[in-house]
Amino acid sequence: MADNALFQFLLRMGDNSLILGHRVSEWCGHSPVLEEDIALANTALDLIGQTQFWLGLAGEVEGKGRSADDLAFLRDAWDYRNVLLCELPNGDFGQTLMRQFLYDAWASVMMGRLMTSSDERVAAIAAKASKEVAYHVERSGDTVVGLGDGTEESHARMQAALDYLWPYVGEMFDSDEVDAAMVKAGIAPDPAGLREEYDALVGKVLGQATLTIPTDTFHHKGGRTGYMHTEHLGHLLCSMQWLQRAYPGATW
């Protein structure tokens, strides 16, 4: 059971960065300006790199000989364990950066806690990722402030993005038996315990951005447990897994 819980936890970590990384990579060649195109591609690259570590370790822990590539390309939507926030469509540039900020803020708090994990492998990945995440949250936070506290048009778009995405934030702080097992083993914190730090960081940045956090506390869920993903994930996987589906077992 302990190993299976660890496997599930690692899938959640790896699937978050994989699915968000793939989403962000969809901007490659389409961003409003060259600098932003490069920035988004680099962010996606960091996320995919982190995925290799998380899913690589997941495969090792599972012990069935599956590699990070196998886990990324040979699972279908129902086996994915990312939070719904990561699979939501890019929308406009503002919505992409808002989604990025809401995720980066969570990741920065989470990686900080995981650096003291009782599992050295988890701690090593978190220490590596935390440097990249710190850089990401600085950029996405700055952009959210720039666009939120920008023109009437950009402000309205950022508020609309926040209103759309906010109901997906709560899932990042849900806890279940997998989390309880991780807490017991000292491997990972209870996600619920990250909320206070998250709210402080996000509240500060959104305040500077002159944006209003919705007051409704309802949140969507089903991604991290695999109970039910949004319809968007299947479409994403169609594109991401196309090669392995068309040519099963193809190697580079």
Binding site: D46, I48, G49, Q50, Q52, F53, K128, A129, E132
Partner: peptide, 8 residues
């Protein structure tokens, strides 16, 4: 050791 996680 890698520089950045995803460095190609």
């Amino acid at each position: 050791t890698p520089t950045y996680s995803g460095c190609p």
